[in-house]
Design a protein around this nucleic acid. Structure first.
Length: 643
RNA sequence: GCCGCGGUAGCUCAGCCGGUAGAGCACCGCAUUCGUAAUGCGGGGGUCGUAGGUUCGAAUCCUAUCCGCGGCACCA
């Protein structure tokens, strides 16, 4: 007998090996009908599974949040069956559930095109309508391999081989079609319902390995209800409107063109924003004891051989051509650290000078793969708010923690409070002894623990010279972007011959912390545009207000208002065109100008302005001086507000 | 870099079973002085990404190449 506890607390005994379905049926036929799976002690299982131990049991309906994963997973199976029905000979590989849906990877000579999707969807609806039960069978390893090999499913054979020896080989059947699968599944294909949609086709490497076959992937999503699917599609549209590439054009911030792939042409307004960020960081780091420096853009490539960059990243570095009168090969810097080490090395340093913190808004160039380029988020030329902190070994944890706190405080000023931290330890491709890595990782971990922030391990993802913390922000479209980083480096200073004199007059190699807060200013601007949907806070808006007239009778007062605004330090533009106020309001709203100061005949006479804020209806009338004072107040950067 | 898709006026896009380019918005001109998201009328503007090829004839078909988009891989 097995004793099962139900969600309402009731406890009943059942015959050993009874299926979930039989239990549900015993309670009521309608329960059995609407149940698609069960959860035993919280773990979702097939409803047909035999129960052999005591535990808590729950029946899941289609509407249960935990069933969503099943709907999507089953949908992936239906997709695979549909594809094989339409194009026999196509091999199936894997089809997992992902964050907002699922995908299935196929191998065939002719990849899918977007036009295939509606055809596949139609076939899927047929399969769902047939409503065949999902049944599970356990096969022997040899039998599974033989069957798949006979069917020509060579990728499945490889998967069977990859399943650990202590795990059984599960086969799920839906009518005549079957797939190797861990499960669980719902009771039948009909439970998938019709609220699904195939989204896009894409290429993907078999097992994520760029040396292996290129598979053809179909992405889809599915929901329990049509309304949920509609809402999801609507959200995608909304996210598209936030795309920084689109907003960047509409707000006249920047552009790209063919001649400079992956490099930004910053327009006046975008460059204003860029400089505001730079000034902000400059204030924050001066406060934190950093000195700003500037190192050469172009240095002899031998320097990069010494650091190991040429060995690790040669094809991603921009190198100068050989020329007759100078045979040296120069590299455009892909990082600022070697330059900063040269500055450290220039002149004898004492332990009394540590920690020595030098910062640079360093513009670095990296030949990113063409497929990786993505607006401001991934470029080939970008500006790091980079710094290097030279310290003794004993200072690692303390200084790393200071950087951690500074980074998090900065993100808060920009409205990013939900930041995830990743700890990346030693990669396979690295320099330096394991003993040195042990020390570096332990010290960084000590800082991380002191910060008392949740973090995740990013195994083997450290830099080739040291472990790192990475700070990840999530954008409006749900993509994660790594921005800040702290890296402990016990290797490069020694390689580059840096040392300081300790209290016993000995030469000692310093430890170097690398840190960046925005990471790339370009990327951070992209993330911010999407985060705010273009509605930048006043202190960051390139144009903070537009003075717009209703009639030319107000022109003189408008010019006066401009002068007064200029004296407050606000960035204000005038719009005295002979256009209707509706037209002006619309245009400046689309350009995301945060405030409009509207002047008509009435305002000109009374020396007032009518303020309209972006995204808000209605307006507020107040004396010009009061209005400017209010805006100037609001435009104070958050860090200066604290001071 | 790999797979797929795309590149036509400043922007969004139509034309693409070959016959030599079109719309809306934007821009310019004129009129309008009009109270909070598009005033009316008129006008100018494109070697159809680039280079080859097929053809009497190419934006339309073919090849190469560049750039972009969606993924994958990569990201010091």
């Amino acid at each position: 007998m097995v004793a099962l506890t139900f969600p309402d607390g009731a406890r009943r005994d059942y015959q050993d090996g009874i299926s979930g379905f039989d239990i549900a049926k015993g309670i009521s036929p309608s329960l059995a009908k609407r149940t698609v799976a069960m959860a035993i002690d919280g773990a979702v299982r097939d409803l047909s599974e035999a129960i052999v131990a005591d535990g808590k049991i729950e029946f899941l309906s289609r509407e249960d949040p935990r069933a969503l994963e099943l709907i999507r997973h089953d949908c992936a199976h239906v997709l695979a069956e549909a594809v094989q029905a339409l194009w026999p000979g196509t091999q199936v590989t894997i089809g997992p559930v992902i964050e907002n849906g699922f995908y299935y990877d196929f191998f065939r000579n002719e990849p899918f095109t977007p036009d295939d999707l509606p055809v596949i969807e139609k076939k899927m609806r047929e399969i769902i309508a047939r409503d065949k039960p999902f049944t599970r069978e356990v096969w022997s390893r040899d039998e599974a391999k033989r069957v798949f090999r006979d069917k020509g499913e060579l990728f499945k054979v490889e998967l069977v081989d990859a399943i650990p020896a202590d795990q059984s080989i599960n086969i799920y059947k839906q009518g005549d079609w079957f797939d190797l699968c861990r499960g669980p599944h719902m009771t039948s294909t009909g439970k998938v319902g019709n609220a699904f949609r195939l989204m896009k086709v894409a290429g993907a490497y078999w097992r994520g390995d760029s040396n292996r076959e290129m598979l053809s992937r179909i992405y889809g999503t599915a929901f329990a209800k049509q309304e949920d699917l509609d809402q999801y599609l609507k959200n995608l549209e909304e996210a598209e409107k936030r795309d920084h590439r689109k907003l960047g054009r509409e707000m006249d911030l920047f552009h790209f063109q063919e001649e400079a792939p992956g490099s930004v042409f910053w327009h006046a307004k975008g460059w204003t924003l860029f400089q505001l960020l730079e000034q902000y960081i400059r204030r924050r780091q001066v406060e934190a004891g950093y000195a700003e420096v500037n190192s050469p853009q172009l240095m002899d490539s031998s320097l990069w051989v010494t650091t190991g960059h040429m060995q690790a990243y040669r094809d991603m570095m921009f190198l100068t051509e050989h020329r007759a009168d100078d045979e040296r090969v120069y590299a455009i810097k892909p990082m600022n650290c070697p330059g900063h080490v040269q500055i450290f090395k220039n002149g004898l340093k004492s332990y009394r000078e540590l920690p020595l913190k030098i910062a640079e808004f360093g513009k670095v160039h990296r030949f990113e793969p063409s497929g990786a380029l993505h607006g401001l988020m991934r470029v080939r030329a970008f500006t790091q708010d980079d710094a290097h902190v030279f310290i003794t070994e004993a200072q690692i944890a303390e200084e790393a923690l200071k950087i951690n706190d500074l980074i998090l405080s900065i993100y808060e000023d920009f409205g990013f409070s939900n930041v995830r931290i990743k700890f990346s330890d030693r990669p396979d491709k690295r320099i330096g002894d394991d003993a040195v890595w042990d020390k570096a990782e332990a010290a960084l971990m000590a800082a991380l623990e002191k910060s008392k922030r949740p973090w995740t391990l990013n195994k083997g993802e450290g830099a080739f010279y040291g472990p790192k913390l990475e700070y990840v922000l999530r954008d409006a479209i749900g993509r994660d972007w790594q921005c800040g980083t702290v890296q402990v480096d016990l290797n490069l200073p020694g390689r580059l011959g840096a040392f300081y004199i300790d209290e016993h007059s000995n030469k000692v190699v310093p430890v170097m912390l690398h840190r960046a807060m925005f990471g790339s200013l370009e990327r951070f601007i992209g993330v911010m545009i999407e985060h705010y949907a273009g509605h930048l806070p006043l202190w960051l808006s390139p144009v903070q207000a537009v003075v717009a007239t209703i009639t030319s009778d107000a022109d003189d007062f408008a010019r006066e208002a401009m002068l007064a605004a200029g004296r407050t330090g606000l960035r204000v533009e005038a719009d005295l065109r002979n256009e209707k106020i509706n037209y002006k309001v619309r245009e400046h709203s689309l350009a995301k100008v945060p405030a409009m100061l509207v002047l008509g005949r009435k305002e000109a006479t009374e020396r007032t302005v009518s303020i309209r804020r972006l995204g808000k209806e209605g307006q507020q009338v107040m004396p010009l001086d009061a209005a400017l004072k209010m805006l100037a107040e609001e435009a104070i950067p958050p860090d200066m507000r604290r001071a």
